[in-house]
C-alpha cells in the first residue's frame, strides 16, 4: 500500500493505493487517525485500492467512529468497484459516508 496526503483548508485528502490487508492496517491507521484527532475532515480516496479485506474495512469503521466521536467526518471518495463490493458485503454502505 502506498499513500499521498494533500490538504485543502480543513480537509485532508488521503489517496490510498494498492491492496489493504491485515499487513498494512497499522500503517493505514497511523496515516488516518492523527488527521481525525486533529479534527480534520478526512476524505479517503479509494480509487486505486484494488483489494480490501475485513481488516481494511475495520480501519474504515474505526475511522468513521473516531471521527463521529470528535465531531468531524470521514468521507470515502472514488471508491473502486472491488472495495465498494466489500463495503456492501459488510452491509456498511448506509453507515459509512460514501461521497
Amino acid at each position: 500500500m502506498s499513500y499521498k496526503v494533500t490538504e485543502e483548508g480543513n480537509i485532508s485528502i488521503v489517496h490510498l493505493d494498492g491492496e489493504i490487508d491485515m499487513d498494512v492496517t497499522e500503517k493505514a491507521k497511523e496515516i488516518i487517525m492523527p488527521l481525525i484527532e486533529a479534527k480534520k475532515e478526512v476524505h479517503l480516496n479509494l480509487k486505486e485500492v484494488q483489494y480490501m479485506d475485513s481488516s481494511g474495512i475495520s480501519v474504515l469503521i474505526e475511522s468513521h467512529q473516531k471521527a463521529t466521536e470528535l465531531g468531524t467526518k470521514v468521507i470515502l471518495k472514488d471508491i473502486s468497484k472491488s472495495v465498494l463490493k466489500v463495503i456492501m458485503m459488510a452491509k456498511l454502505e448506509q453507515i459509512l459516508n460514501l461521497g
Partner: peptide, 9 residues
C-alpha cells in the same frame, strides 16, 4: 463494530 467481519465474509 470492527472484528468478526472476516468470518462473516
Amino acid at each position: 463494530k470492527p472484528g468478526g467481519l472476516g468470518t462473516f465474509f
